[in-house]
């Protein structure tokens, strides 16, 4: 009894937080909380979107001098219709939960930046196969959903697509294959030492 009484009337920041307000009305507190929530949520999402832009991704030389240079020559950067897929369109999930998880995981890249693990082109090339494999595995685990945000088997026209790719796509659909199973290295160079597991005679190289 005396304990709970002393808690309510105690000093310190925790006790102050727990003590009912004698100065502000409930409506004032709710309004302030509501407005604060909007501001926090807005700022959080704006921050998350800001880290999704092409400019942010190429802000560091590690990306700008390597994968960005290659991407600039790809169809996802420049094409007939003027639709561009930026880094995050392929490398960051669109839905909020998975996007947040990806962002948290990406914070590990800050450690890479601090330790300079891919600080030079040589270091980057030495790690390219490992880094690319990580990303391919991530895409495969999500059934290439970032590709499927724009591409779908059902939207492929047998008249407009050439016969060989159309045949292969329909076969892939039947087999439940994922885009990334075949389409690796479409926006960046394939790592040295990469062997296409689908090419049955790759061992002949």
């Amino acid at each position: 009894m005396s304990n709970s009484g002393s808690n309510r009337g105690g000093t310190g920041w925790w006790a102050a937080l727990r003590r009912p307000s004698a100065k502000y009305s409930l409506i004032a507190l709710l309004t302030a909380g509501f407005a604060g929530g909007i501001i926090f949520w807005g700022a959080f999402n704006t921050g998350m979107e800001a880290t999704n832009t092409l400019e942010f991704c190429v802000g560091c030389h590690e990306m700008r001098d390597t994968v960005f240079e290659e991407y600039k020559y790809s169809i996802h950067y420049s094409n007939r219709t003027g639709v561009r897929a930026v880094c995050s369109d392929c490398h960051v999930p669109k839905d909020w939960t998975h996007k947040l998880i990806r962002k948290v995981k990406a914070s590990g890249e800050i450690w890479g930046k601090l330790t300079g693990s891919i600080a030079t082109k040589e270091k980057f090339e030495a790690k390219r196969l490992q880094l690319a494999t990580n990303e391919w595995e991530r895409m495969k685990a999500r059934d290439s959903i970032e590709c499927r945000n724009c591409h779908s088997f059902d939207a492929m026209s047998p008249e407009k697509q050439q016969q060989t790719p159309y045949k292969k796509h329909m076969q892939a659909k039947l087999e439940g294959a994922s885009c990334i199973d075949c389409h690796k290295g479409i926006a960046h160079k394939l790592p040295k030492g990469y062997k296409d597991p689908n090419a049955k005679d790759a061992e002949e190289w």
Binding site: N198, E204, W205
Partner: peptide, 24 residues
């Protein structure tokens, strides 16, 4: 040779051409 293999892999040549085996 390494560069040649790299370019062939990049362009998915082996989807339709084998080194020694005919495909499509």
């Amino acid at each position: 040779v390494e560069a040649a293999k790299g370019l062939a892999e990049q362009n998915n040549c082996l989807q339709c051409h084998g080194i020694k085996k005919d495909k499509d």
